[in-house]
């Protein structure tokens, strides 16, 4: 059974159809990419999936549940986590605290437990911190645990966003342009990290990316959006040679690969 099934999703802003009747399915354990020119509606599509926007039309089924119209936090609690195109960390909190916030739904301590500092609460906190450190290790910024998130270099902020998303023990993680603004070296490292999400942790990944080298090297399936509509879908080979995709990109990026 598919982990995520979005059918006929339509999202309209005023007169603009940002996402137009898009159907999209993700199998568990896969890495799939959503590509398309600027303004194609990729981020909007993510926002619909994660409940930030309610779609005008369509249904989203995730992990066997119809989550259409659910609140964002409910969807996150169910195991769908994301990162943001324009990095949204809690800038004045430390790196470690950012990850701990990501763990919120898995911490049980009641308000009485907290006020009385019960044994269970202390134990849970200690465990949470250990787990957070493990995640920071995983993304490679454990040594920065006490720095304020806003003081991290750009690449580390992207890593921290991933660690924070992982803290929710997601089944599915949505990455919105995780390598935007990175140099080739950082991009290569990020690519490795994304692979390890799936290979080491078994998390299904949906990726929005403009870096075609990354997309082509990592994805099992690719969906292409253009002006809100899905114009193509398939494996790397099929997308490379798809004339509509090449046209949408006007010979940029994808066309090089097609040659």
């Amino acid at each position: 059974m598919a982990l995520l099934e979005a059918t006929n999703i339509t999202k309209v802003f005023g007169g603009l159809v940002a996402v137009n009747d898009v159907t999209f399915t993700v199998e568990p354990g896969s890495i799939v990419s959503v590509i398309g020119p600027n303004g194609a509606g990729k981020t909007t599509f993510f926002n619909v999936l994660t409940g930030i926007y309610k779609p005008e039309k369509g249904r989203v089924i995730f992990a066997g549940q119809d989550i259409t119209g659910w609140r964002s936090d409910q969807i996150a609690a169910l195991g769908m986590r994301r990162t943001f195109q324009n990095i949204r960390l809690f800038g004045n909190m430390t790196v470690l605290e950012n990850v701990l916030v990501g763990m919120h739904v898995h911490l049980q301590a009641s308000i009485w437990g907290i006020i009385s500092r019960g044994r269970n609460m202390l134990r849970e906190e200690a465990k949470a911190r250990n787990k957070a450190m493990e995640l920071l290790n995983f993304v490679g910024i454990a040594d920065k645990r006490d720095e304020l998130a806003k003081n991290l270099p750009y690449g580390d902020q992207r890593r921290l966003e991933i660690a924070r998303a992982l803290a929710g023990e997601p089944k599915l993680i949505l990455l919105d342009e995780p390598t935007a603004g990175m140099n080739p070296h950082e991009t290569a490292e990020a690519t490795q990290l994304i692979r390890r999400l799936r290979d080491d942790r078994g998390i299904t990944v949906i990726l929005i990316e403009h870096d075609m080298r990354l997309v082509m090297s990592i994805s099992e399936r690719i969906s292409v959006l253009d002006y809100g509509s899905k114009i193509a879908e398939g494996d790397v080979q099929a997308i490379r040679t798809n004339p509509r995709v090449i046209e949408a990109y006007l010979g940029k990026g994808a066309a090089d690969y097609a040659a």
Binding site: T50, D73, A76, R88, V105, A167
Partner: peptide, 8 residues
């Protein structure tokens, strides 16, 4: 927005 995206 980011807080809610963490399930809060």
């Amino acid at each position: 927005v980011a807080a809610v995206a963490q399930g809060i």
